[in-house]
Amino acid sequence: MDAPHDIGRRLAAALQRHAGLHGSVEGLRRLTGGATKTTWSFDLLTADGRRPMILQQTPTTTASASASASASASASVSVSASASAPPGLSAPKLDAAEDARVMIAARAHGVPAPVVLAILDVHDGLERGYVTERVEGETLGRKLVSDPAYACARGAMAAQAGAILAAIHTMPVAELHFLQRLSPAQELEVYGDLLARTGFSHPALAYAMQWVRKNLPVDWRDALVHSDFRTGNLIVGAEGIRCVLDWEIARVGDPMQDLGVLCMRTWRFGGAGEAGGFGSREDLYAAYERASGSPVDPVRVRFWEAFSNLKWAIGCVRRGLSVRADGSPASLELCAVGRRMEEPLWDFFQLIEA
């Protein structure tokens, strides 16, 4: 890995080249982050003052990236052992430039996405990635749903989330031609193929696959779907939601999917509210309908909540079975994630029985 000094020097040059910003990089530090990205926080000191920023990189050569790639390549759901996704279909995963373009489009449509300052290219010597303005706030789910400091925020967040999702779902997508369009049936086929490729079988997974197939929605309108809109991917301040993060699995599909993901028990982090652990479904749905002018379909939301639990169970299987090039387990952490498969499956069965 490059030394922070070298990264800072290249960052300053990249910001001058792409954004016309002249300054020096200070306070560069690596943050704890997701499995597939490297995140750095820094300040750009310019003649006009200090500007807080974030560098997101998508590494391709580090050991952690290799382990993550193995996990991603091996985890998905399958309808049957012989099922395979149609040519060209796969679980959506945007590259860094596409991810940034979605955020730029979202910001232009009034969605509180990060402000993108520069999209990096091969000439910058910084891996693929982008630079955004840094938004201060909290992202830790357990803290957001329980800390008294965020009590006022929790009172507003369900309505804020409903309005934000309404804005996301009315975004024009014509210029985002790289986004995959997945119908509910195609989602099932894609994730079924992923599971089949792991070679793992389990009666509860098989039953869940059959239930999803039998309950696929037959009527929906296409919209841009964030697909990972949940507590943990929101930056929150005392007043509520400040920014929506992690757009890299966005797609075009049924917008009710986003409401279902937000209501998953996994992403409530022990909070009492069915919407993200912080609020009620009623407040979420009412705000969405006010802002979008379209009714929420509670049956489709529950379907996507159940299906999303199945997808997360499949994700746990894939991570638990991921291996290094020599065939050894990718990491103890990923093995531990694999053992959590039962939690989303339990939530799935609780939902379909209700």
Rank of each mutant, 00 (worst) to 15 (best):
Q160M: 09
L11E: 09
L144T: 01
V225F: 00
Y191I: 13
S280F: 09
A13H: 13
A3W: 04
G88A: 05
S70N: 07
V337F: 15
E138D: 05
G34N: 12
E305S: 02
G141Q: 03
S183K: 13
T231I: 10
L321G: 08
C316K: 03
W220M: 07
L234A: 06
M209Y: 03
I104S: 05
P59M: 05
A69Y: 15
G327V: 07
R251W: 05
L321F: 13
R30W: 04
I168T: 06
S292W: 13
W220N: 08
T39A: 09
W211Q: 04
L89I: 10
S68T: 11
H18T: 04
M209S: 09
R340K: 15
V323M: 07
A65F: 14
V77I: 14
T231G: 01
P4A: 09
G277T: 06
L120I: 05
D283E: 13
A204R: 15
H169S: 00
M209H: 02
T39M: 11
N233L: 12
A275I: 11
P255Y: 00
T62P: 10
L182P: 01
F303N: 06
A35R: 15
D6F: 04
L45D: 01
V145N: 01
V261H: 00
S201F: 14
A97N: 03
D283R: 15
T36P: 03
S41K: 12
L351T: 01
T198D: 03
V102F: 08
A151H: 11
P172M: 03
L334H: 02
K93N: 10
S90G: 13
W40M: 08
R319N: 11
N215E: 06
G320A: 04
S74R: 13
N215D: 01
L126F: 13
V244C: 05
H22I: 09
R318A: 15
T46Y: 10
A166I: 03
D228Y: 09
L245D: 02
A118W: 10
S64T: 15
A108M: 04
A91M: 10
E136H: 14
S84M: 12
F307S: 09
T36A: 12
D121V: 02
V79Q: 04
S146R: 07
G276P: 00
D283Y: 12
V261K: 00
R265H: 12
L15W: 04
S292H: 13
A71R: 12
L31I: 05
F349R: 03
A196F: 03
R181M: 02
Q350F: 14
L94P: 00
T231D: 03
S24M: 08
V111K: 06
F269V: 08
L94Q: 03
R17E: 08
A12F: 07
R134N: 08
V301Q: 00
Q160V: 05
V236A: 07
K37S: 11
Y130V: 02
A96M: 11
P295C: 09
D258P: 00
E189H: 12
S183W: 05
A174E: 15
H22W: 11
E289F: 07
Q257C: 00
G277N: 03
F200W: 12
D6I: 09
M341E: 02
A158T: 11
H226F: 01
H109F: 07
T36Q: 09
G23P: 00
P148L: 07
T139L: 11
D297S: 05
W267F: 15
Y207C: 10
W220S: 09
D2N: 13
M1Y: 08
R339D: 06
L176S: 02
G23Q: 06
A96R: 07
